[in-house]
Nucleic acid binder design. Structure first.
Lengths: 288, 288
DNA sequence: TGTTGTGAAGTTCTTCACAGCT
DNA sequence: AGCTGTGAAGAACTTCACAACA
């Protein structure tokens, strides 16, 4: 299972393994199960006994045919003419996702983002337990965040083994991410959620998913640009500029250099911390 | 363009519009352009003049055929037998993504996550400028975060209009998200990046992408479960449990109730803030 | 009657493999 | 000789539309 050595990464956020389906649950379906679960949990709290695929789909923000197809991979858990039993579905999806068991996680890199994650309510309420917060900065060690002590990286291996941690969250600067990743994997972690803007290399059998804040914004910018700017790009776009002569390329390259230079400065400023030298994107966290 | 009224949401993070391609750039390709751009920027900083599709693909964590196909949608920017001019490609991709222009953004909800985003280096280095930080808590207003003053929600409309903001980032608790979203949209924002675990309803023409921390972990848990647990689920899975008798359902429902109850408590604790009552997932941010 | 569950059709995305150019 | 650009094949995902069933 899982992807090869260098984890490829699917569309936007994730890069977890393709073709991992146990008895054939499509990845796209797995990615939506948490959505359904959330909607169902809300219904459950309002003591709603049953829902139709139509209602639930609306609550989850998908269309009902997709939802029914998704559920069909799990089994026949509905009742024709009636709908789905909310409690029953909550249980089945929780079980399918593995949320009926306890998942200890470690968070490495306790800056603002690490803090935010440590405090995140969605973790605890889904069977995820923060087993430890780790940071390379000795000044942080001993302090507490979200009621937990921040411990030094030196203790990483020990904690992972003692607590049977199999999921690690990386919220370090990009320059430290691969190194932290390697240590996590060596210590036994087999699933990693990476917030650092870095492509992580992991051995086969280790899943990596990534959350990249900057990428999401760039995708929005792309669409945003199209909304008002049908003009200057419409006839200057892809097909027309293609096959540019050497002259055209030289001019564009000059412009590119200017852009690049500006970017370089920002990157340099951001990457003030040693051991980085990777790329301009750097989450504002204390290096770990 | 964009999706209907209730934004559906694709796989994991995003829910931006399908079929928005201007002159036919696939969504999947758009989602990867930022990845290529990052890899290229790194090369550019190392003054590497050209790259082959193979090298660049490795750096970006994709395969080379996919990369070449992606680039083919932009035009013929490479040189056969040689590769791609790094600077030129940086410029072309930046332009395609709309990063050659300035994108003012507002961040609403200045808790830990809002702070982390305000400090995030990847924003500034890609043409995104934080125009304002907003929060509903009067105690925060006046304080500064990441060098910027936190301003009160009352000023939202004014700021958006004065600064021509078209992109908004929501980092509020879930209960406040839809309301904030409505105000942003009414004031003229047409792209939203949502970190709150809520399905946002927006009018046509508005793009929403979401980043959901809890969902990513749940997807990892699903795969993690399969790694060691081929046993108890292998022959108890989908197909076999399907078509359960009424008895089986009742038993499972009882178990479900226990799970649900535990979850309910966590949710209640997390949702202490008034105006929520939505769902258990609540990022640790000050309500806005 | 109302709603599920699902073959089949349709769409999008990925990968292959090689012609075409430098 | 080497690498891009792309038609064509293949895989994954979505949507349709309706039979099956409570």
């Amino acid at each position: 299972m899982a992807t090869g050595r260098t984890t490829p990464a699917s569309p936007s956020p994730g890069g977890a393994s393709r073709r991992t389906r146990a008895r054939g649950i499509p990845d796209a379906t797995v990615a939506r199960l948490p959505l359904y679960l959330r909607a169902l949990t809300a219904l459950s709290e309002r003591s709603v006994p049953t829902v139709s695929s139509e209602e639930l789909a609306t609550a989850a923000g998908v269309n009902s045919a997709k939802l029914r197809k998704d559920f069909s991979y799990l089994g026949s858990y509905g009742t024709r003419g009636v709908g789905y039993d909310v409690e029953y579905l909550v249980y089945q999806i929780s079980r399918e996702l593995g949320l009926t068991q306890d998942w200890p996680v470690v968070i490495v890199g306790i800056g603002n983002l690490g803090h935010a994650l440590a405090n995140y309510g969605g973790f605890a309420s889904r069977g995820f337990r923060v087993a430890a917060l780790l940071d390379a900065d000795p000044a942080l060690a001993g302090q507490t965040a979200a009621g937990l002590p921040v411990r030094h990286m030196d203790e990483l291996e020990e904690i992972i083994r003692a607590e049977h941690v199999s999921i690690g969250v990386i919220t370090t600067p990009p320059g430290a991410a691969q190194q932290v990743c390697d240590r996590l994997v060596a210590a036994g972690v087999t699933s990693i959620l990476n917030f650092a803007p870095t492509v992580l290399s992991v051995p086969e059998g280790v899943d990596v998913r990534k959350v990249d804040l900057s990428i999401e914004l760039q995708i929005l910018a792309f669409h945003e640009q199209r909304k008002s700017g049908e003009d200057h790009l419409a006839d200057d776009g892809p097909a027309v500029v293609s096959r540019p002569g050497a002259g055209a390329k030289a001019v564009a390259a000059a412009a590119a250099r200017a852009v690049s230079r500006a970017r370089g400065k920002a990157a340099a400023a951001a990457a003030a911390e040693p051991g980085d030298g990777d790329d301009g994107d750097l989450p504002a966290v204390i290096p770990a």
